[in-house]
Design a binder for these strands. Structure first.
Lengths: 125, 125
DNA sequence: CAGAATCCAAATAGATACTG
DNA sequence: CAGTATCTATTTGGATTCTG
């Protein structure tokens, strides 16, 4: 299930990081978890556009890569909580730098999208 | 061609960044270009595992997002060269932070892969 | 609520052949 | 060499249903 990506070589450090945080919702999830959102249902409430299944998959991968850890409480109704591991915490400065750059350029980015949307090849006029 | 991803909301800065550098080879390409590898054929030589077509696609997206720029020399044989834009250069500290983290944890990462490969669900014994 | 199973759609990447 | 066009394979994400 997780073997798929091993063939890549990791000669470039970024490739390792991308492997870990590259999923569609992982950045959100890390952001939320680092802010104390712990339970799957809460996370889903924060990211309603994704299905619970997909979030679950990505959480599993983050867990598999040792970035987050899951505590399961054998109660009824069931409850589980996620938190950052030490490795995950060591990632946070990088995450924050990434988030800061993105936030600082999101306006620019939107403009670019609007300006160029549908006209990737301007008619020169 | 590029409209596909717009539906995402960019409430989280990381999502913007991931949008820009999220492709399979973009990290390598940025790394190489920032190190002065400029021509498509050179880039391809450095990343022989990817096809020229795919590299080309990702270069196009990086260019579209304003991270790199292309200079085309109307010669024979044809020649073109890529370089970082100002925006691309503003990204480099982040890229470097990402690369540093990845490089610092690649050993750990490999071990994890080996240890867990094929045994995501340990038999508990 | 948490999460697994199944089926399906979209996105992304690779192989190959072709043009100037 | 640079770049495009097809076609295909793989990966990824989404919808739905079902269990405890």
């Amino acid at each position: 299930m997780y073997e798929k990506k091993i063939p890549k070589d990791f000669s470039c450090g970024m490739a390792v990081l991308m492997e870990i945080i590259g999923g569609k919702w992982k950045s959100y999830l890390l952001f939320l978890i680092s802010n104390g959102i712990r339970r799957p249902s809460e996370l889903h409430r924060q990211i309603p556009t994704a299905t619970a299944r997909v979030l679950n998959l990505q959480l599993k991968e983050l867990e598999f890569h040792g970035i987050i850890q899951k505590e399961i409480y054998p109660e009824l109704p069931p409850r589980s909580e996620y938190s950052l591991t030490a490795l995950g915490q060591s990632l946070m400065p990088v995450i924050n730098a990434m988030d800061a750059w993105g936030s600082g350029h999101v306006g620019e980015f939107r403009l670019l999208m609007e300006r160029k949307s549908g006209s990737l090849f301007p008619s020169g006029e």
